[in-house]
């Protein structure tokens, strides 16, 4: 009897939930990767990602962490690209310029000696650039534990109307 009544409650809830969601101004898509956004973005995962890599996050979570002020954003591109436009407040650690030796000291110094469990979000320009993935793997290897990769990068950040910090004007 209880199970039959529970089934009725679940059926009514499912019907009402799906029905109201259809007409709600705050409706969200029912299935798919985690993407509850009105802007339509989604988690972008590069084909060379492997199990054990730090998590890839979508724009919504990147923005959430940005607004919380708790995370450090790391731009992995060359300084020239970094200066042309980046996520405000981010730190530039160009992946291509990483030293062969004393990598740990170099990174620790670049990050201002932040705690190993500080949330670090690496990114570069967008889908065609996987420097953020490589840098995140290096950060993981030297002991940083709270990492995420925003693979949409600065391009997606700008495309959805979020602020970009420009240190100089560059031709696009």
């Amino acid at each position: 009897m209880a199970i039959r009544q529970l089934a009725i409650i679940l059926v009514i809830s499912t019907g009402l939930g799906l029905g109201i969601n259809l007409i709600s101004p705050n409706r969200i898509v029912c299935f798919g990767k985690y993407r509850p956004l009105s802007s339509g973005n989604e988690v972008i995962v590069p084909p060379n990602a492997e199990a054990g890599d730090p998590p890839f996050i979508a724009l919504d979570l990147a923005e959430l962490e940005f607004n919380s002020g708790e995370a450090i954003f790391i731009d992995c591109r060359e300084p020239e690209e970094f200066e042309c436009g980046t996520i405000p407040g981010s730190i530039n650690i160009p992946f291509d310029n990483l030293p062969e030796e004393n990598l740990e000291n170099y990174i620790d110094s670049a990050l201002g000696g932040c705690a190993r469990d500080k949330l670090l979000i690496s990114f570069c320009s967008g889908e065609e650039c996987d420097l953020s993935l490589h840098l995140a793997r290096n950060l993981m290897a030297i002991g940083y534990t709270n990492l995420a990769i925003f693979f949409g990068g600065s391009r997606e950040w700008e495309r959805f109307g979020l602020n970009i910090e420009r240190r100089k004007n560059c031709k696009k």
């Binding site: 409650i9 679940l10 009514i12 809830s13 499912t14 009402l16 939930g17 799906l18 109201i20 969601n21 969200i28 898509v29 029912c30 299935f31 798919g32 990767k33 985690y34 993407r35 509850p36 988690v43």
Partner: peptide, 21 residues
């Protein structure tokens, strides 16, 4: 990740209807 949104749509209604019942 695939069912998070579905859960977010249905679970609150289960709470509401159970509470009313």
């Amino acid at each position: 990740g695939d069912i998070i949104n579905l859960m977010a749509i249905i679970l609150p209604w289960v709470e509401l209807i159970s509470g009313v019942c």
